[in-house]
């Protein structure tokens, strides 16, 4: 049992070092800069591997993109400038969170539209039901109801 555990630990350590091999270590003096670097590299998709962020990918292009993000941060560029810089070259595709523009209006608008539509349907149904119950008694029914109530009272 103990041997198994040791074996597993060794395997895990090896696996960890293999994964880490492709991703370089970067030192930042400024913790804000470091956070921005992490945010950018975790929110950009590797153009080659499709379902990996560039901070998680061993593809050469991801390494180049991390390096470029780092350089642009060092040059003092703003977040929007960095994103534009990358999108100009690799397209909207690399953004995990697509920007709000005409082409993506359906993507962003559809959920909101559906919620509004759903609320409208609920309001209409509730109203219809309320009207229906308020109007439920016809003159004839009312007369019968009165008769019943009066019978209760008089007895």
């Amino acid at each position: 049992m103990a041997l198994m555990r040791l074996f597993a630990a060794v395997l895990l350590t090896l696996a960890g070092s293999v994964v880490a091999a492709g991703i370089e270590l970067r030192e930042f003096d400024d913790p804000v800069m470091e956070q921005r670097y992490r945010d950018h590299t975790s929110s950009m998709r590797c153009p080659l591997c499709e379902n990996q962020a560039i901070d998680d990918s061993d593809a050469p292009i991801s390494g180049d993109m991390r390096e470029r993000v780092y350089q642009l941060l060092q040059d003092g560029q703003s977040d929007i400038e960095i994103i534009n810089h990358m999108v100009q070259r690799f397209g909207e595709y690399i953004l995990y969170t697509p920007r709000l523009e005409n082409r993506t209006s359906l993507l962003w608008g559809l959920p909101i539209g559906l919620v509004v539509l759903g609320m409208l349907v609920v309001v209409l149904m509730v109203r219809a039901r309320r009207n229906a119950s308020a109007k439920a008694l016809s003159a004839e029914e009312r007369a019968r109801l009165d008769a019943l109530i009066n019978r209760e009272r008089s007895s």
Partner: peptide, 8 residues
């Protein structure tokens, strides 16, 4: 290649 958006 980077400026051209080449990724492979």
């Amino acid at each position: 290649g980077f400026d051209l958006g080449v990724y492979g």
